[in-house]
Design a protein around this nucleic acid. Sequence first.
DNA 1: GACTAACCGAGACGGTACGTCTGGTCTTAAG
DNA 2: CTTAAGACCAGACGTACCGTCTCGGTTAGTC
Lengths: 200, 200, 200, 200
Amino acid sequence: MSPSSTLPSSSPKPAKRRSIGARQNPEAEAAILTAAIAILTEKGPKGLTMDAVAREAKAGKATIYRWWPTRGALLLAVYARIKGDHTHADTGTFEGDVAAFFDYVFAFWRGDAGRVFALIIAEAQSDADVALALEAYRLERVTAWRAVVERAQARGDVQASVSPDALANTIIAVAWYHLVTGRLDVAGADLAAPIAAGCS
Amino acid sequence: MSPSSTLPSSSPKPAKRRSIGARQNPEAEAAILTAAIAILTEKGPKGLTMDAVAREAKAGKATIYRWWPTRGALLLAVYARIKGDHTHADTGTFEGDVAAFFDYVFAFWRGDAGRVFALIIAEAQSDADVALALEAYRLERVTAWRAVVERAQARGDVQASVSPDALANTIIAVAWYHLVTGRLDVAGADLAAPIAAGCS
Amino acid sequence: MSPSSTLPSSSPKPAKRRSIGARQNPEAEAAILTAAIAILTEKGPKGLTMDAVAREAKAGKATIYRWWPTRGALLLAVYARIKGDHTHADTGTFEGDVAAFFDYVFAFWRGDAGRVFALIIAEAQSDADVALALEAYRLERVTAWRAVVERAQARGDVQASVSPDALANTIIAVAWYHLVTGRLDVAGADLAAPIAAGCS
Amino acid sequence: MSPSSTLPSSSPKPAKRRSIGARQNPEAEAAILTAAIAILTEKGPKGLTMDAVAREAKAGKATIYRWWPTRGALLLAVYARIKGDHTHADTGTFEGDVAAFFDYVFAFWRGDAGRVFALIIAEAQSDADVALALEAYRLERVTAWRAVVERAQARGDVQASVSPDALANTIIAVAWYHLVTGRLDVAGADLAAPIAAGCS
DNA sequence: GACTAACCGAGACGGTACGTCTGGTCTTAAG
DNA sequence: CTTAAGACCAGACGTACCGTCTCGGTTAGTC
C-alpha cells in the first residue's frame, strides 16, 4: 500500500442504503469509516463525533454503536483500514534500515493516517480498551523490529550485547514522539544516525 | 520537590470563600487546581470536566474560565503546580546520567503527575494551544539535555560526531513513550544502556 | 365470557415457531397478542412497544407490522380478543339495568381489559385510525343502549320525551370517565341513581 | 378570558435570549410554552416532542427538562397557561346553567385548549404524575359544580335526593366524553336536557 | 466616604454530543 | 407466501458538559 493513498474515494451513488438481512451490511461499514476519515480531514479531531459520522455516512447511530461501541474502537477500525502491511526493507545496513523506516512511516503519517494514529494514542490515555489495542499493536511492531535487529546482529552490524527489544522500542519511541509533537518533516537519516551510531 | 509529593492535601475548612477585591483570590486558584487533581485521581481523565472541577472546588465556572480558558490550560497549570525543578545530576558517566533521569522521571510520573502529563500530550493532539505549550516545554527539556550531552562529549563520554539535539530528543522520546504506553515500572539502567552504549 | 378472565395463560412450549406455509400462522397471532397483554401487565403502558412485543412473542417485527400496522391496531386487536359479548340484562327497571351495566363493565375493566381500553382512548387522541375504530365501537355501544332505553320507555320506566341517544351517551360517558380517571371501584347503583332518577 | 383566545401571539423580536443570572428566565418559559402550542397546532400530537419544542423555542433541552421533567408536565403547564378562570353563570335554571357550561367549554376546547386537554387525559393513562394532576383538577371542577347543584337544590330546581357529587361528575363525564370522541360541535342544550330533565 | 472596577460563588441559558431506545422497512434463510 | 431474526436509517429520549451570561455580594483602590 502506498503511503499517500488513504481513501478509495467515496462511491458516487447516493442511493438509499438498506438492510441486507440479518447480517452486517458491508456498504454501511465502508460508508461509516469513509465518513470518519472525511470528517477528520475537514473538521479536525474535535469534529469527529459519533453524531457527525452518522450524519455524514447517512447511517443510524445505532448502526455505528452496534459495531464500534466507542470512539476509540472506531478510530482503531479507521486506522486498520488505511494502514498497509509494512515489511521492513533490507537496505544492507542497520542504519539504512532504520532511516528507511522513518522515511516510510513519516510519509505514511503525513496523510490522514498520522492524525488517526495520534488520536488513538491520545484516546488510549483515557480509554482502557484503546490502550489495550494500542499495546497489542505496539507489541506487534516491536516483534517486527526485533527480527530486523537480530538480522543486523547476525550480520555484525549491531553489537550482540544490545537488547533487541530495547533497541526496537527506542526506534518506535522516536517515531511516536515525532508524531505526537507534529514533526514528521524530518529526514529519517538524521534520526537513524544517533540511534545506530554506537550500536556498531 | 520530591517526586512522590503531589497533593498539598485539601484544606479542612469549608468556610465560604469570597472575593478579596478586584484581584485574583489565590485561595480560589489553589482550590481549583487541587480539585482538578482530586477528580483526576478519583474519577479518571473522563471525569475531569470543567463542571466537575467547579463543583468540587466550590468555584463558579466563570472563575475557572477567567484564568484557564480551556481544559488544556487547566491541565498545564496543574502540571506546572506539581512538577518540581529537576536538575540533571552528574553521575560521572553519561549512561549513569541517563539512567538516573529515567529513574527520577518515572518515579515522578508514577503519581498523579504522569496522568496529568499524559493527558497534556493527549490534549495536544486536538488542541493547538496545548500543542504549542507542550512544544515550548519540550524545547526547554531538550535544551537542558543538550547541556548534559555536551558535557559528556567534552568529557569524551559521547562521541563528538553525535548530534546533541538528536540524542536529547531520543532520550525524551523514550521517556514519553513509556509514559503514554503505561510502562513506568522499568529500570532506568535498562533503557539507558542501548542509548548510551554505542555513543562512546 | 367471564369478566375476570383476561389471559389464556402463556403457552408452556418455547419450541421454535416457524412458518406454516403461504398463510398466516395463527400461533404467531396468538403469541403476539398474548405477549402484548403480558407486557402491559408487567411493564405498563410505557413498556408496550413493538420491539418489546416482538421480543416477548419471539416474533419478527415484520410479522407484527404485516397484520397490525400501528400500535393502535394492535391495541384494538388485543381488546377484541379479551372482550366478551355483553348483552344488557333485563332487570325489570331501567335503573337496575344501568346499575348492572356499571357493575359488569367495571368488573371487566378492573383486569387488563380496562388498561387496554384506556390506552385505546389515549391512542385515539393522536391516531386518527384508532379514533375511527373507537368511534365505530362507540356507535355500536350506543345502538345497544338505545334499544334498552326504548324498551324502558315502552315500559314507561323512562319518559318518552328523553332522547334515547342522549341518554345512552350519558351512560357511556360516565363509564369511560370512571375508566380514564381510574375509579372503577364504585357501586353501579350509586351511579345509576342520579342518571335514572328523574327520567321517570 | 374569552374561550377563543389561546395565544397572546409570539413576540416579534428574535433577539437572542440569554440567562438572566442564577434564576429562571420568564422569557424562556414563555417561549417554550408558546412553542409547544405552535407545534401542537401545526404538527399535531405526534410532532410534539421535547426536541421539536426545544428547536422551535430556540431553547436548550436542559432548560425544558429543568422546569418540566416530563412531556406530561409540559402539557399541564401549557393548559394552565391557556385556560381561563371559568365561573359558572347563573341562568336562573339548572338546565340553563348546564347548557351554558357545555356551550362555553366546547367553544373553549374547539381551539388549541381541547387538543391539549385531550392529550393530558391521554398522557394520564400512562403517566402517574399526570394522572395525579388531572385528578386534582377534576376534583376542583367537581367542587365548583357541587356549589351550582346545591344552589339549584336550594332553589328547588333539583331534587334534594340527588347526590350533588354524582350529578357534578355526570356533567363533567359528558363533557370529557365529547372531547375525547371529537364531538365538540354539539348544542349544550341538547346535552343538558336529559341530564337535568328528571332531576326536577 | 462614595464610587468604580474587578473579583467571587451560583447557576440558568442555548447548544450539542452522548449512548440508548423505538419506529417502520428491508433482506435473508428456512418452511 | 409466511415465518423468525435482526440489520438498516431516522430521530426522539433524557443526561451531561460546554462556554457565556447575569445576578447579588465582596473588597481594593481611586476620587
